[in-house]
Design a protein around this nucleic acid. Structure first.
Lengths: 344, 344
DNA sequence: CTGAAAGCGCTTACAG
DNA sequence: CTGAAAGCGCTTACAG
């Protein structure tokens, strides 16, 4: 392994100069820099990250925490973040909570973030008050994406979940539906999200604005994924007097609903209309109407907001550092799964 | 930040002893260990990874390289690997090539792996001969998952792609199909996979075994994803005289085919049968017949094979270290997208 | 079983 | 613009 001394010797300068030249600091003459770069190239020198981190105090890594990397939204967000971070020269440490409370505790309580990263991105991660204290003690910059828990001092990028749900519900109302069910995530999940709470809220708001009273019998909770959508819909149908339309809290739940409806012999949209939120990569294939949310943009923007203060001088952030959350727009996409209720 | 000296002072021992006690080395008396642990706990001490890495030479991190984290197979593999690595106390550095050759070069050519990780996992990553030289120079342990390029000395876990394709094709043949098309990935992709080559091979084998000659007109290449499946199927239909069945190289391509078939007014399976490979989370929802492959198991097993030699004494690997690849079984899953051809 | 001391390979004031 | 030297916080032979 060639070290910085080898480069220094070959270039005929001190290790301090090699260090400066290689990092592109301005305090090196063009000629010296050229000599150093050539020597490093010739020796195939690569700086030791551990040594650099220990001496410099920066890790060059960012931790990204997601509930489940296998879900559409999180996969897309991570892809966008990964691209941005690597282009900026940062490593990405992935933490997938996998829906298990135990994993969140391992991440936060033990020292798995401590001195390991320069910043943290929390995607849709709910935090207990004790977790907030832990994070504050870590004294790291961070950003939150999507609903979850806001962290004081961290910027946040997300959509307006309440408004998205309102739009979805209103679309069904506009088509003439009155018995509109809602299927969403279970607050008893070990790792409860908060997105589905906001979405239920928007559903209720839209119903009330149309003069309807939310019917608890039309409101079923289950897991926030495909299987959860199937279970919730089965439960809904078991209750009798099925709705003419279902608003699923996310596209994956809507897809699960599709299975349950088909198994029950109900056609979409002739018997039941169905709408979700996301615009999942497969929603087009399934003809699913939905509220599209920009996942790539949320990831990219969050990465940008996270790195921005890390690069520039302290406090020189050019982007909305903390303050109010950045809300990205959503949009109604009408496909084949929503239609007026049967006139009968 | 409390350092190891603080703990040593409080426990009344040397830093060497603290280091040993905290890492669970056997050469520490039970009593001393207890005192050290208590002191560390009391001071909320967390070892500095950078210092530990520099002094000890181990990074405690593993790089995982995938083509696209948003694709079903890679998401599931990463989820399994993440879980295993974190349980073993390793960090996971995620590299998502995003289908861009440039990203692979950045990863391999520059020093992004150099001294940063203890091991590398390459999932479905094709390698040029020059890349193999680079990897060899890195002198890191590694493992490959799924088709890609084998690396000398690294173990490999995968399925038998040829056999899987043969089974899929034979299923269609058994149903009575004779005009069986194949849609698969494009070798002109910047980052060519090899899985689809093996799968085409199996398709050809099954046809020949049934006494049929592969028809180039029924063999269309496009991207190895949803959009690619749609494009390939559109091209197939444009050629006229449509097949009675389509074997897609992966479920995501089959899903894309579904859209194209629907748009062309063709019903599945009445007009065209369709089968893929994977057993994607949504294949059940879509009623797609497929060849299921164990993604979680491939990830978990690969992680295990990777870490095993890192923990035990050198060469004491208890698992099939290198040698022949570990082949995991696939299985035919018949749903609603395959049926006998119309008798006409 | 434990400790004193060297050393891992960089970066950063400080001085010039 | 450049260099000598201290220091980042651990681990590891080595000695006892």
């Amino acid at each position: 392994m060639t070290r910085i001394d080898d480069v220094a010797r070959l270039a005929g300068v001190s290790t301090a100069t090699v260090s400066r030249a290689l990092r592109g600091l301005p305090t090196v003459s063009a000629q010296t820099r050229r000599r150093v770069l050539a020597a490093a190239e010739q020796l195939q020198y690569a700086v030791s990250p551990s040594a650099s981190r220990l001496a410099g105090g920066r890790t060059g890594a960012v931790a990204v925490v997601v509930p489940r990397i296998t879900r559409w939204f999180f996969g897309v967000v991570v892809e966008a973040v990964e691209d941005f971070l690597h282009q900026a020269g940062y490593d990405l440490l992935l933490h997938n909570l996998g829906g298990r409370e135990q994993n969140r505790q391992r991440l936060l309580r033990t020292a798995n973030l401590h001195k390991r990263v320069d910043a943290v991105m929390l995607v849709a991660t709910p935090l207990h008050p004790a977790d907030l204290t832990t994070l504050a003690a870590l004294d790291l910059p961070g950003v939150t994406v999507s609903s979850g828990t806001d962290v004081p001092g961290w910027p946040c990028v997300r959509i307006d979940d309440v408004a998205a749900a309102r739009t979805a519900t209103r679309h069904l109302l506009d088509l003439g539906h009155r018995r509109i069910a809602h299927i969403s995530g279970d607050p008893d999940d070990e790792l409860a999200f908060t997105a589905h709470l906001d979405r239920r809220h928007g559903y209720h708001e839209a119903l009330r604005a149309a003069g309807l009273r939310p019917d608890p019998g039309l409101d079923v909770e289950s897991g926030f994924d495909i299987a959860g959508g199937t279970r919730a819909t089965e439960e809904l149908l078991r209750r009798g007097d099925p709705p003419t339309a279902i608003f699923a809290a996310c596209d994956e739940m809507a897809m699960g609903a599709l299975t349950a409806l088909r198994d029950a012999g109900l056609r979409v949209p002739q018997d039941v209309s169905l709408i979700g939120i996301d615009d999942h990569a497969l929603s087009g294939v399934l003809g699913l109407s939905t509220i599209a949310q920009p996942a790539t943009e949320q990831g990219r923007l969050a990465a940008e907001m996270l790195l921005d203060p890390l690069c520039g001088p302290a406090g020189a952030s050019t982007i909305n550092a903390a303050g109010s959350p950045v809300i990205l727009p959503t949009r109604l996409v009408v496909r084949d799964s929503t239609a007026p209720p049967r006139a009968n």
